[in-house]
Computed example of a mutant assay.
Amino acid sequence: MIRIATDDPARPDVHQLLSEHLADMFATSPAESVHALDHSALTHESITFWTAREDGALLGCGALKTLSPGHAEIKSMRTASAARGRGVATRMLEHIMAEAARLGCERVSLETGTEEYFAPARRLYARHGFTECPPFGDYALDPNSVFMELAVAPK
């Protein structure tokens, strides 16, 4: 059974998954267009970080960063390569959105890439109701970035 719980981004297996994530981001996008956070940045007090595990094995991770009252951003969504195709990203996204609603968020935003590598992520977010939007927070218009948002129904 897949369990999602808060976790420590510095935990060795999580650190490795996040390092792979960053390496893929820098291999796919120009450095100035990489907005992924490393494990130390994910420990900031404005961020809640979760992992998905099954029988202790790490399947994926995701985070929610509070930007302002009522507005949060999804960060560091990643599924371990061995767990792809099992619905881990969907489960994590549903968990993050439920937590955003519980916290009173009115809107959740995200940034992802425009390259073909990011097409599965864009499809996942669109399937869950996210739509493209202008840059938010500290982001600037970037031809390598797609910005998306979703209104959150209060819980």
Rank of each mutant, 00 (worst) to 15 (best):
S76V: 02
D7A: 14
A83Y: 08
G85Y: 07
C105P: 01
E106F: 00
V152L: 01
A63Y: 06
L110M: 12
E20P: 00
P9T: 04
P154M: 12
S109C: 12
A83D: 10
A119S: 13
G129N: 07
P30E: 14
F136L: 00
E73G: 05
R102W: 07
G70F: 02
E111N: 04
M92F: 07
R78K: 13
C61Y: 02
A98P: 09
I74K: 00
H71D: 10
E45K: 03
E99M: 07
G70P: 09
M92N: 05
G62N: 12
Q16H: 11
L18P: 01
K155V: 14
L42W: 03
L141Y: 08
A63M: 08
G62S: 07
R86L: 14
R127Y: 05
D142Y: 05
Y117C: 09
T79R: 05
L59M: 15
A10E: 15
E111V: 03
P12S: 04
D8E: 10
A72Y: 00
R91V: 08
S145Q: 08
A36T: 01
D38P: 01
H39W: 11
T28Y: 10
G129M: 06
G62C: 10
S145A: 15
R84C: 09
K155F: 10
T112A: 10
E106W: 01
A82M: 06
R123H: 13
P135T: 03
R91L: 15
T112P: 02
A36Y: 01
F118R: 06
H39A: 15
M97E: 15
F147N: 04
R11G: 12
L141H: 13
L58W: 04
